[in-house]
Design a protein around this nucleic acid. Sequence first.
DNA 1: TCATTCTTTGAAGCAGATCTGAACGATTAC
DNA 2: GTAATCGTTCAGATCTGCTTCAAAGAATGA
Lengths: 302, 302
Amino acid sequence: MTEWDIKKLQILRTLNERGTVTATAQVLLMTPSAVSQQLSNLAKQVGVPLLEAHGRRVRLTGAARLLLRHADAVLAQLERADAELAAYAKGEAGEVRVGAFATAVPALVVPAVRALRGAHPGISVRVREAEAGEAYDLLAAGDVDLALSLAAQAPREFEGGRFTQVTLLADPLDVALPRDHPLARTAALRLADLASEPWIFGGSGPWSEITRTACEAAGFVPEQAHSAAGWEAILAMVEAGMGVALVPRMAGAGAFGRSGVAMRELAADRPRRHVIAAVRRGAEASPTVSHVLAALRGATRA
Amino acid sequence: MTEWDIKKLQILRTLNERGTVTATAQVLLMTPSAVSQQLSNLAKQVGVPLLEAHGRRVRLTGAARLLLRHADAVLAQLERADAELAAYAKGEAGEVRVGAFATAVPALVVPAVRALRGAHPGISVRVREAEAGEAYDLLAAGDVDLALSLAAQAPREFEGGRFTQVTLLADPLDVALPRDHPLARTAALRLADLASEPWIFGGSGPWSEITRTACEAAGFVPEQAHSAAGWEAILAMVEAGMGVALVPRMAGAGAFGRSGVAMRELAADRPRRHVIAAVRRGAEASPTVSHVLAALRGATRA
DNA sequence: TCATTCTTTGAAGCAGATCTGAACGATTAC
DNA sequence: GTAATCGTTCAGATCTGCTTCAAAGAATGA
């Protein structure tokens, strides 16, 4: 028996509740004949008699009671599926798979998940760490539903492509320089003022080019004295007077408690790093995805 | 959505495994056309899109993955039902409801259930205590599958009726009399020798008449001096010299440790009490029921 | 005991759904 | 650019299930 029929199981269940074929037919808006046929059909499929005559009515056999237990479980499961799908349609259930770069996970995704748990308990988020390029591949392949990536420029919100992108956060880049540096107290610090300094390049992946890009936009080519993947290492080098660095305000907040480092805002044409959320074209219409997007937005303000 | 179709869920599951409509169709021995139609049909029923185009293939949506989890559970449940029904057909699964008189439960049913648990773990027994008359009503109404009752005569094993009866045990009745009674040492004790003794009638239900019936069969009318429902009370009265009594050997084994009571076998035309198992006509062919019957038989020999 | 009534079951006809086969649009590989 | 692959759509054929009608079995009442 490989081809199960839910309707037959429902008929069996109703027969068990009502006790007679006729009453079952009334409840299910069928004729007694149809009920009888379906049940004998089911019995033939399972290979075991389900009904036996008892006076002018029928009685369920042991096999029928056995089958009934499973039928109840199956029908209950289907009702749950129904309810969850209804919730899904309203954006109150479902799973959203998020691909995010490493530092975004604790800074954005985790707070968003936490907020989501309160506001939309039915929505679950599955996180997968992925750098920008990979994240877009995953997004295109359908392995994630939402990708978080970094970029130096805000994306043109092109609607014609395969993705829809929105900027979650435009984090300004501040300059980290030694506390006793002559420029540490300048009134209006501009990037060009640091043209002759030794620079410490940051980060991994696409981020490693951000310092060079920003400096070139300011009109000079920076001298790459050092480079490091983590912000803490970079700030340590700054503190030691080994150079200056561009640090996203989000990452460098408080300079990790290093008193020898001065964080200075840039006065003009301040470079920013953009945290971009991308979904497949059309997916932003999904209520579930849009709830996750809203939660991520909220996390940028916390 | 109230009308679920298992076949559609299987198609969705296979599509998830194989990844393409064509491969799914091959596995399920269908045409890609049919697969496509069934899936779009399912999506329409659910009210949420399940597939979206991805290149020249399709990808499952979040709703599809949500539905898939439930589909897996449902299909697994159905496979279990299938397995259990197959086991049921072989008599290795199922539930047998037994109606039994009170003293049969510890003496016969419990040992049988214990033995059954080892030999046929899939079979479960549901016990319901019922006196003889009630047990047969329950059996006729289909509320139990097997009835245990007591009778003074072995049933004629009539096959034409509604029930099939078999004698599980023909327990001889012994005479309990005070140890110092003159007849306590007679060589061949017959019931007629006790015609002038005061009798203690036993038991409840149909059993209360057994003493009278046996004595009348022996040619005299017993004097009912006392009566009690429990064998222990009866033996206490015998020990006190208040009368003699007929006691089933099974019930009176060891005379409950009363040294003042002598248990004597009857020499001739010894009356017996019969423990009878009855099933509805035809039910003895059920492997499950016959396994329980065999276990009950085995319990009579232990 | 007989008739009535209720229940279930069976046969024939019909309606709906599903499957097949071919054609089309779109995408990928060579 | 061309050919092959994939998914979908449409029309026709087939199948399953439902309804109507009819009959048989079993319980209730007189």
